[in-house]
Design a protein around this nucleic acid. Structure first.
Length: 862
RNA sequence: GGGCCCGUGGCGGAAUUGGUAUACGCAACGGACUUAAAAUCCGUCACCGCAAGGUAUGUGGGUUCGACUCCCACCGGGCCCACCA
């Protein structure tokens, strides 16, 4: 009985067949036929050495189902796959095993390919891409040069070629050097000395996004701060558009919230404070950002981040009396990691003795402090402290005995958060804010600041510019050279790609230079501009680069003249449905949206395409280990898809993955659960097999009405559920129909009529493509079921002629009766009241109210 | 601290979006077939009760003819963000 359902044979046969026939191949049509296309996308995997995890296929199978249905509905479906293969794990693996990263990648890709193909997913393999392929990263480099060759026009709010940048007269007059500098400072990609998060273990600079919580995202080591010249991309220029355009896309709400949160817009004002040392006014004002300019009257001290450049300048100028104390605090703060800082929320700080700031609102002198609760990277790195209206300031003021002054007008509606203002100062009423709500008071103050020349309204974002340099080998080389004479010079387009040279050792150096720096004959080159000697940039791009535009390459993956033909982009873009893990909904999503918008601005992506790359974004949840704990090698509860496919076959694996639970909810793997699905598929196979062999299909006229109704309901439910990504209930609906339709087949019932049998197979085909195509052919067809039209249901046949009407008395079910579907309200009520059971509960009382719900129930209250 | 989400059988979960709570699957139990086991098939399966009936969707209130669903409070759990001025 082992081969009751010979899946090995069947699945192999159909996979080969589809491959040969190009069943899942997408066809490039003219842009005018755009309404016919459907572009489904899954996050392309990183081909790790560990192979496919059972979590990966959840996404692939789900989108496979949806695209299969679209295909059957006549859409021209693009469902591609590729490899996001640059990155650290491969490089580290290569270092450890002393092999080339490219070889490790090739091996891993081959393994992933075999695994994914064994699942029968309808990918168009003819469009397979790999970010580490020079033919691919040539375009990643080309796009980087577009960033380099562009600036952001703040007035128009979009990127433009740098040639169009207007050079102010005053700059032009200073000569070529100044002009060049001016231009370089405006570029969308620019190199600058920045504080970077340095992972001492990976020996790599990390973007803020990769160092969340002060630890390296990859290895968990506490990151250090280092200063380094790094390539940056000006994503901040797009902050507002990245925010605004979320309105027009269909993302899960929580994903939108994450994007909004990360961009972190705040409205407020910059306020300039004069600073005095002794009796003299210092030349430079101290600027702060505040979201509550209306509380300016309550600012009783200032706080700067310890690393604020003005502090250094004041120390240098000998203006600070307690230099030693200040220096000690600065050193301490520098040594503290983000993590330690977060763990230790106790406020610390040091007053800068000898300095006072002047509150422009009331000309009062207020002390200036440094404290690590003020972050250097946000706003101006300095704040005006309003302890009466800010909890952190309050805490600090309490600890150091600083005055607390409540602003009366602003306090209204503010409730002051119920803080115990034991040392509450004079209630200061400015007069101008009298009776205003907070928002009005804010606007009023901004106006006042502008009039008095000590501030202006402003909007800030938490979003930082994108640190684009990595000091690593296994990434796209940044395609510029540094010429002694010309400065940074881009590699001409026709010389791209700049390929990675073979290297003896891939270990990064402690100096923080990429391993490429050691390859002198690669580094030493000539300047494309002047022909003089020049050195190549040895930094490589981050992992995010290749994945920021891959969905465009799928539209035209073999093009060697352009990253993609604009006509093909016009046809395929935007992606109709994008699915991936929640772990990529902040960074990758933000970067790729930004990248795309930039390309769109330059017209490299035709304007006929949407200004957003993904029309719809959904995310799947995790597959957990048995018992609901996360799968991990150390716990030894990792389920290998290979083993499952070997034991149960791809179709059982697929159906089980979809049946396991709601798609957006974590679900534990259950070795017993998959058995039930196996029985389900075996039942289908065996029943169809013998029905076909003996031609037991009943004629439509003789078909039981209940079955007709159930069939139509099932087609409807499965159609809707696939669309709504409610795969678990779709599977359940299929099981119900199969139980009813052919569980009793051979004992007490005949098989479904032929047309229904075919319809069932069609709606089942996206779930179990191999089994369905096999049975489809056994039914005598010669073309693939996956190109057949999706079955229609008859809405009139989704309802039976009768229904079970429930009668409630005072909200409790007291009787049920089978009545005609078109029963009138009066009739229904009369029948309900006539029921003996109902009468027993009415105990002779007169009904107060009778409600009839069509097709459902009668509710009587007494 | 902020934001989002979730609490339903022994387990994964369903519930037409305010209308018969517990679909479907797993596990468990009983039976048939078998020398026996597996597989398969037929049944039982929220709780209390012999039954009639009663009680149950984290807890307590509210709205309603009717609440898993809506509102308020509380308890418990999860995820994301977080000294962002």
């Amino acid at each position: 009985m082992a081969s009751i359902y010979p899946f090995q044979e069947i699945e192999k046969k159909w996979q080969e067949h589809w491959d040969k026939e190009g069943t899942y191949r997408a066809e490039d049509l003219p842009a005018a036929e755009k309404s016919k296309k459907f572009y489904g996308l899954i996050e392309f995997p990183y081909p790790s050495g560990e192979g496919l995890h059972v979590g990966h296929p959840r996404s692939y199978i789900a989108i496979d189902l949806m695209t299969r249905k679209k295909r059957m509905e006549g859409k021209d479906v693009l469902y591609p796959i590729g490899w996001d293969a640059f990155g650290l794990p491969t490089e580290n693996f290569a270092i450890k095993h002393k092999i080339r990263p490219a070889d490790a990648t090739a091996k891993n890709v081959a393994n992933f390919t075999r695994q994914i193909k064994s699942l029968g997913i309808g990918f168009d393999w003819s469009r397979e891409i790999n970010t580490t392929d020079p033919e691919y990263y040539k375009w990643t480099q080309w796009m980087f040069l577009k960033f380099y060759g562009s600036y952001f026009d703040a007035v128009e709010g979009r990127a433009k070629p740098i040639d169009l940048l207007a050079i102010p007269q005053s700059v032009a007059e200073q000569g070529e050097e100044a002009t060049k500098r001016f231009r370089d400072e405006k570029r969308m990609a620019f190199k600058t000395a920045t504080k970077i998060n340095w992972c001492p273990s990976c020996k790599i600079g990390l973007a803020n996004e990769e160092a969340i919580g002060g630890v390296c995202e990859r290895c968990g080591t506490t990151v250090e701060q280092r200063t380094k010249e790094q390539w940056m991309i000006r994503i901040t220029a797009y902050a507002q558009r990245l925010l605004d355009d979320l309105v027009g896309v269909d993302y899960l709400e929580k994903i939108k919230a994450q994007q909004i949160n990360w961009i972190g817009r705040s409205e407020g004002a910059y306020v300039d404070f004069d600073v005095t040392a002794g009796s003299g006014l210092l030349p430079d004002k101290l600027a702060v950002f505040t979201t509550r300019p209306d509380t300016l009257f309550g600012a009783t001290y200032m706080v700067l981040a310890p690393e604020h450049e003005m502090v250094a300048r004041w120390i240098e100028g000998g203006l600070i009396e307690n230099v030693t104390e200040v220096e000690t605090y600065k050193t301490q703060a520098r040594g503290m990691s983000e993590l330690q800082r977060q763990e230790n929320k106790e406020k610390t700080g040091v007053a800068l003795k000898g300095l006072m700031a002047i509150n422009p609102a009331n000309n009062e002198k207020i002390p200036v402090w440094i404290a690590d609760y003020v972050l250097a990277g946000y706003g101006t790195g300095a704040i005006m402290a309003v302890p009466a209206h800010d909890e952190r300031d309050f805490e600090f003021a309490q600890k150091f005995g600083l005055p607390i002054v409540q602003v009366v007008a602003a306090a209204e509606g503010d409730e002051t958060r119920g803080l115990p203002f034991t040392s509450l100062g004079v209630a200061f009423n400015s007069g101008i804010l009298n009776g205003l709500a907070t928002d009005e008071a804010k606007a009023k103050m901004i106006e006042w600041l502008a009039q008095n020349g000590c501030g202006r309204g402003a909007i800030t974002y938490k979003l930082r510019d994108w640190v684009f340099s990595r000091q690593r080998y296994w990434g796209e080389p940044i395609p510029l050279v540094k010429c002694q004479k010309c400065g940074w010079v881009p590699i001409p387009e026709d010389q791209l790609p700049v390929t990675l040279p073979d290297v003896e050792k891939y270990e990064p150096s402690d100096t923080g230079e990429s391993p490429l720096a050691a390859i002198r004959d690669w580094v030493e080159t000539t300047c494309p501009q002047c022909g003089g000697s020049a050195e190549r940039e040895t930094d490589t791009m981050p992992n995010w680069a290749g994945s920021s535009w891959y969905f465009m390459r799928y539209c035209d993956p073999h093009n060697d003249k352009a990253f993609a033909d604009p006509e093909k982009l016009k046809f395929w873009m935007p992606v109709d449905l994008y699915n991936g893990g929640m772990e990529h909904t902040t960074l990758h999503l933000l970067y790729s949206r930004f990248w795309y918008k930039f390309m769109w601005d330059l017209g490299l992506v035709p304007h006929e395409c949407s200004s957003e790359p993904y029309a719809k974004r959904r995310s799947h949840a995790l597959i957990l280990g048995e018992g609901g704990i996360k799968m991990s090698k150390s716990k030894g509860n990792v389920v290998n898809p290979d083993d499952v496919v070997k034991e149960y076959g791809a179709d059982v694996f697929r159906v089980y993955q979809m049946f396991i639970g709601p798609f957006d909810q974590d679900a534990p793997w259950d070795t017993h659960g998959i058995e039930g699905v196996k029985r389900f598929l075996e039942k289908i196979f065996v029943s169809y097999d013998s029905a076909i062999e003996k031609n037991y299909f009943i004629s439509p006229e003789k078909t039981d009405e209940d079955l007709v109704v159930l069939y139509n309901q099932t087609v409807k439910k499965v159609s809707n559920d696939i669309e709504g990504m409610k795969f678990n209930t779709a599977v359940s609906a299929l099981m119900i129909l199969s139980n009813k339709a052919f569980e009793k087949f051979g004992t007490t019932a005949d098989f479904m009529p032929k047309e229904m049998s075919e319809g069932f197979l069609k709606i089942f085909a996206p779930f179990a493509p191999h089994l369905s195509d096999e049975l489809w052919h056994k039914l005598g067809h010669t073309t693939s079921i996956h190109r057949e039209p999706w079955p229609q249901y008859d809405p009139a046949k989704c309802m039976s002629a009768t229904f079970e009407m429930v009668v409630q008395v005072n909200g409790k079910v007291r009787d049920k009766m089978e009545v005609s579907a078109d029963i009138s309200e009066e009739e229904a009520k009369a029948i309900a009241l006539a029921s003996e059971k109902v009468q027993a509960f009415l105990v002779g009382k007169e009904p107060q109210k009778i409600v009839y719900v069509k097709g459902r129930l009668v509710s009587i209250s007494v």
